[in-house]
Write a protein that binds this DNA or RNA. Structure first.
Lengths: 245, 245
DNA sequence: TGCTGCCATATGTCCGGACAATCGGACGAC
DNA sequence: GTCGTCCGATTGTCCGGACATATGGCAGCA
């Protein structure tokens, strides 16, 4: 194979990670075509001067990503599909930016309030505890896209209105050293109330896409709860789901 | 610890899997409380008569599920959160059955047709190729919940109308030996057309939740494409998203 | 021809060990 | 008192090997 595989033992990057990145790049650029066998692990390990467990770890990470399939007695194949990325905790701001939509944000509310019952329950706090409360209008090309209402536990992050208008909430949390880990989401639809219609530039009774989400960090602590409403003509949710057997 | 941990070497079940199941059960029933340390891997391995790699494999599988967190230099902790299950490729039929809603299905169309452009593209077939086409109305307690329109590649499965009325499409595919692996989903909302409103028992212009999905098996082959519309008053999408770093 | 059983092949599981990187607290220097 | 350093603890990475098990093709037999 002329894949240019080879690891650098002087690098602090783990060997299995170097290999998995190279394999992923080879798949990405088409050097490993869908359906083709990867060659057996033993020989691959010998060729690269690595042990089999290390090679397996590299391959396993790509299997987890859905790029490869292992079959006992057969070999490891490249998946032939439109699988691009697995799913991620999507950030509306980043999604819009990636789509070249020039996102903008108008901060409508940014203060500390007693937590409403629903937010307190989601964040695991007592009802009436103080929480950060942020309401934002998200725009693209100057047009309203979504209305975002969020609650955060106190002391987690100090939210400057200026920062909130420059970037997304997730990016701010990550920048504050919070490692996001999982989220419970609920997506639905309903007719716009008069107030919602006014805010988003729709007619009353127009369909809206709604999302409720609680986000947790890597220790399982709830770090954010929010209810969002989207204009369905301007936004829809795109997922890539993976099943783990 | 009185966790009752111990493996059976006579069982064909892999040791790491036995251990991970026991740990998961211990977490589930509260014997391992959120935030508590799991005890170091070396000692745990010694106590169980296993090697450290085997114990690590068991722990890793629970980390992947989001039940445990590892911290170098600290130990492995139980996540303290409402994290129950990771996300799965949800089946509407099974979801309803699990919620005790007694799902029902009316098959409206079940035949072979030339593939519409969108379905052919999603399934990776030429436009106009023959495909299975199924249209169903999904009910709960006799009330319409969703309208499901699906296309499947030919020869994959023979779909009996009787079977379709008794269970869900995913269950039929799994029963035919197809291993579902991933799906691309798009969720949105729009106003009901007159025909849609009629089918679902809503008023024209009422908000509907829409889902478009292409499903792939473990080799990356597209095995299903469908467009669904849901009554938002009766159904919403619930997810548990996990981020892998 | 068609079925059966064997066998090479590849991944799956498991072991025991070694060293590195990181975390948190204890200790000592300033 | 505060800061930096050291050190024990724990996970992270990596090795080399062993045997188990599922797969698919081939040869032999009915």
């Amino acid at each position: 194979m002329a894949l240019g595989l080879g690891v650098d033992r002087g690098s602090p990057v783990p060997l299995y990670f170097q290999l998995s990145q190279q394999l992923e790049a080879a798949i990405e650029r088409g050097a490993l075509t869908p359906g083709s066998l990867l060659g057996n692990e033993i020989e691959l390990a010998a060729r690269l001067g690595l042990s089999r467990p290390t090679v397996r770890q590299a391959i396993q990470s790509l299997v987890d990503k859905g790029l490869l399939v292992r079959r006992r007695g057969v070999g490891t194949q490249v998946v032939h599909s439109q699988v691009k990325r697995p799913l991620e905790l999507s950030s509306l701001y980043d999604d819009l930016a990636a789509a070249g939509q020039r996102p903008g944000t108008t901060v409508l509310v940014n203060d500390v309030v007693p937590a409403p019952a629903e937010a307190a329950a989601a964040l695991g706090l007592g009802e009436g505890s103080e929480v950060h409360h942020v309401e934002r209008l998200r725009l693209a090309h100057g047009e309203p896209i979504a209305y975002l209402c969020n609650y955060l536990p106190p002391g987690l992050l100090d939210l400057g209105t200026r920062q909130l208008e420059a970037t997304g909430l997730y990016r701010l949390m990550r920048g504050a050293g919070i490692t996001l880990h999982s989220a419970r989401q609920s997506i639905g639809a309903r007719a716009a109330t008069a107030a919602e219609a006014e805010r988003l530039g729709e007619d009353p009774g127009a369909p809206l896409l709604t999302m409720r989400r609680a986000t947790y960090d890597d220790t399982g602590r709830a770090v954010e709860y929010g209810t969002h409403t989207y204009r369905p003509s301007r936004y829809s949710f795109e997922f890539q789901l993976l099943v783990r057997p």
